[in-house]
Design a protein around this nucleic acid. Structure first.
Lengths: 404, 404
DNA sequence: AGTTTTATTTTTTGAGTCAAATTTATTGAC
DNA sequence: GTCAATAAATTTGACTCAAAAAATAAAACT
């Protein structure tokens, strides 16, 4: 039996001293203002179950710190003292959000509200490169985006980066990434921090998409939800009780290598039957040969898939069946997730969701066929066809989180 | 887009007023004393990161309420004022914990510490009965166990019941149970409450096993862990951040009908490829005919499986292969859970774990083959061969939880 | 002017920390 | 053996800060 370790026990409710109490209530007020966009103090008091006096005090702090602005927009014409509308101050701080892709890096600048002010992209020297080369490209894009946003590097108070693979937010360690070829684990946050003059946070890219939903998207209205990303791989983000769950060891949930078939198709990871082996880029490309006979296939996966999608939309039965099977496998995996997590919403996101219509038929069929139908209301599958903005905003949320 | 709903937002840390702060710190102290069995105030202060003064105040309350006792056992011989050891007061309250099985109900009486004072069992009229008949049997066992524990019904301050199927703790609603034949949903907690003079709580049985681990078992040393129960069906309990996660709609995680094979074996639920269709009682019995040719099989599933296990232990290759396949399928499911939840521990519990050795080979092989090997430390699979005591203590924990 | 709704100020209660005081043992010199 | 010195655990009281409640002020509309 293990030795008793501290910090295990009830987590609900307050803990610690009164300063923590104030800090928590301040965070709640800030979150609620972000969620509503614009509100009065009365509404905050009611929504958060705080007294008006407390809200006044907390908002007073936030106003003094410049995080919140009081606007004069006259909301409801009526009797009584008019409510003063509160909103986040966009200029309270600027953060950079970046995403590492197979052949490029994207960097965006976000203001405190979460609006994207500018973005920029830089090519990577290859699909699998050293972290050193990645940071070089990152800096190129960063300089560019600063010019476009008309900001100096000193104005940026946080830098967030999304990396595919196993990345630990708390420590900044990269344990494995399909894009980086360095010996692992190495501290990627530190590496970037040496060349950028502000705090750097890194996280798994699916977690970032989830943060984006939590801060700016559907997640604002759900306590427990899942975000499934479909791109080169399949990713998963889990929100439980309003917070992103990263697992006991901080690496987050891994959905792509969940097995949907015992001794099934061979996956890049060397195992068999992984969900990715049916849904990821390489899996579709593997089958594309049959659907496009006699054609010379493009070298890039993305281009092959675009071609395949075009055929499927034109009614090509073989091409359609490829997407249908991928959808069914994804749907099977989703059904398992629904049974295990019982979320109140599921968001499908990522570049592949551009072929939404092609996949959706298979997905919905498999979800219906494989999830238990109790009398609980059916879970809505929301789809987000956000492009890179999704990742950038998530990385921005990561930086904002580190900021407040 | 949904309307903004309150109570969505940051959950970490304190919230609300100072009374909530004290309540939370009291709960933390109580949990820590339970976890350690016996401790001094200094240790509590250090473990919970509270000042000694606060601990004195909180413990003072608990002493006054009679929940905690100060013992005179001289722990560490040394200089200085000797520490006063604190322990839970067993007589602070008694609760009843009950479990509904296929052919019987079990009821146990637990004291405040969680020790089982007595237990009793009553037969049910059949494998699938009305809730009315179930409550009748429950009362028979309850009366009996009171006699054995030498307590009156008035001394019992909470009644917890574990029910297989879809049960909602918060509302007491039963949405479906393999044992009860009533029209669903119906309020099973209310039904029992009409005939028992104390607060009644109900929950899914796998959740109860998980609560038992959280309060009294391995879970005291882990913040994030899973409990998998193997009995007539396969159940799952999820603990995240020190709390049992019951899903957005309160019905808990469903593991038994997770799909391990697309279009696989037919399950009781009518779908194909469910884990239960390979691991549950009925699945093993279905295959037993081949392993026991020419024999007249007993009518009870349990007896058939005992026979099968005997054969397997004697070296019968066919019988062994049945257990091996069940183990492999369970291992595949477990590997998926490990990837998705990244727990720091997994506990296997339930009656079937008596055939532990037969299953374990297949389980471990499949877990190793199907879980991603990163550089994170391997998760230990703990096995608990607790009998019915497990469920009873879990149901007791449920009642204790409702009590404090 | 009177009414109504929102925001602020003042007062009160209670929580937690800090530092000093108290309790109760052991240690070691005499 | 007796008796201060010492050490550690606990308690006490002064102080700070948080949030709620009550009273007050502000800014509209009727």
């Amino acid at each position: 039996m293990n030795a008793p370790e501290p910090n295990v026990g009830p987590r609900a409710g307050p803990r610690g001293d009164t300063a923590a109490l104030r800090a928590a209530n301040t965070a709640r007020v800030l979150f609620e203002i972000r969620r509503r966009g614009e509100t009065a103090r009365v509404d905050l008091a009611q929504a958060l179950d705080l007294s008006a006096a407390t809200v006044t005090a907390v908002v007073g702090d936030l106003l003094a710190r410049g995080l919140v602005l009081e606007s004069d927009t006259r909301a409801t014409p009526g009797r009584g003292r008019p409510r003063r509308q509160l909103a986040l101050n966009p200029a309270a701080g600027y953060v950079a959000g970046a995403k590492l892709n197979a052949g490029s890096v994207t960097v965006a600048i976000l203001d405190f509200v979460g609006s994207v002010l500018a973005d920029a992209e830089a090519a990577l020297p290859g699909p699998r490169i050293s972290a050193e080369a990645m940071v070089d490209a990152l800096l190129v894009a960063f300089e560019e985006v600063l010019v476009r946003a008309e900001l100096s590097a000193q104005a940026i108070s946080g830098f967030g980066l999304g990396v595919p693979g196993f990345v630990e937010r708390d420590t900044g360690l990269c344990h494995w990434s399909p894009i980086l070829c360095d010996a692992t684990p190495f501290n990627i946050a530190e590496l970037i921090g040496q060349r950028i003059p502000c705090p750097v946070s890194v996280d798994n890219d699916a977690n970032l998409a989830t943060l984006a939903e939590l801060w700016f998207g559907h997640g604002r209205y759900h306590r427990d939800f899942l975000v499934v990303t479909v791109e080169h791989g399949v990713g998963l983000g889990v929100v439980i009780d309003g917070r992103l769950y990263r697992g006991a060891r901080g690496l987050g949930a891994e959905f792509g290598h969940t097995k949907v078939q015992i001794d099934g198709a061979l996956c890049r990871c060397g195992q068999r039957g992984c969900l990715e082996a049916y849904v990821a880029d390489f899996a579709l490309v593997r089958e594309a040969g049959a659907a496009l006979p006699g054609q010379v296939l493009p070298t890039s996966h993305t281009a092959v898939i675009a071609l395949l999608a075009e055929r499927a939309r034109a009614g090509d039965e073989i091409a359609m069946s490829i997407f249908r099977r991928a959808g069914r496998m994804l749907g099977l995996g989703l059904a398992n997730l629904l049974n295990l997590f019982d979320p109140s919403a599921v968001v499908l996101a990522g570049a592949r969701m551009r072929h939404h219509a092609l996949l959706m038929e298979g997905i919905e069929q498999a979800v219906r066929a494989n999830s238990l139908n109790t009398d609980r209301p059916e879970v809505r599958l929301e789809t987000h066809r956000w492009g890179d903005g999704l990742w950038a905003r998530g990385a921005g949320a990561l930086a904002l989180e580190a900021m407040t």
